[in-house]
Design a binder for these strands. Structure first.
Lengths: 143, 143
DNA sequence: TGAACTCAGAGTATTTTACTCGGAGTTTGG
DNA sequence: CCAAACTCCGAGTAAAATACTCTGAGTTCA
């Protein structure tokens, strides 16, 4: 019942890109330094995010990554799905359709429902929301 | 973002025990046969469920497991927590308190909120609910 | 041209999950 | 009272997923 580090790291990096939205591209080096993420690992992560159309990269000197959409148009669901694959709480649900273990599986219905709830909830939260949460958190701490 | 097989298997077994509530104890052999779960593995699972007070065992010939509480008093949260440990979507949340990576972590708030939502939702569903879902599912299929 | 970037694919290390094994203790029917 | 049918407990192993690394190549720009 865990989100992988990939999603965790990925979200952190995307937060920085959200802050820099409509500004200069941000390089892997900068991102990994800011969030203390191993560089080559983050490189992979950013590549996957690009392949899924969440960010775009500019090559060469001065290059780096930029968000491809507005922060409020990028849902956590997209991010997690891009990095961890489709959300499937139980292995049985993954190739979808029918349970491979039991014909009349007593549990598939519940897992399915929970899975859907989670999916919906992740879809309802955006990078924009994450940013504002961080803001209010900061206010709370400093006050 | 997965529930382990332990929780999956465990829930299946508990369904059988719920059906047999207030009847004869059910042995590992029966349970593993019904749900096609490897016997020694299920044994471990049942032990953990017992240690967490969800089932009780009677020893010796004719022995086996019984639910310790009414099905409607056993939440999915308890079950998953017993078998997969406390629900912590992100590793950072596990030892709780502060993020080990960043002081001013931009993402901890969201994960925490999602985590809590999931936790609440699992707490709201009981073994009893699972049983009735299975019933209605069966009706749907046969009609 | 070379420094600062990303790209792509293969490879490795670590951790977690899934599962096994062996021996000991308990209960009950014959 | 003994053997069969159970659970208990602790340690151990196999397989799969995760978390990373490495290398060499292509791109852009000062």
């Amino acid at each position: 019942m865990k989100v992988t580090r990939k999603s965790d790291y990925g979200l952190r990096a995307l937060c920085t890109l959200a802050r820099q939205y409509n500004r200069e591209p941000v390089s892997i080096g900068q991102l990994s330094a800011e969030h203390k993420i191993p560089e080559p690992f983050l490189e992979k992560i950013m590549q996957e995010l690009r392949e899924h159309g969440l960010v775009e990269a500019t090559h060469g000197r001065g290059g780096g990554y930029l968000l491809k959409k507005r922060p409020s148009h990028i849902s956590l669901r997209e991010i997690v799905k891009a990095l961890d694959g489709p959300i499937a709480l139980v292995t049985c649900l993954d190739p979808a359709l029918k349970c491979a273990i039991e014909a009349d599986c007593p549990t598939s219905s519940v897992w399915e429902i929970i899975n859907q709830k989670l999916d919906e909830y992740l879809a309802s939260l955006t990078l924009g929301d994450v940013m504002t949460m961080q803001q209010t958190e900061r206010v709370k701490v400093s006050s």
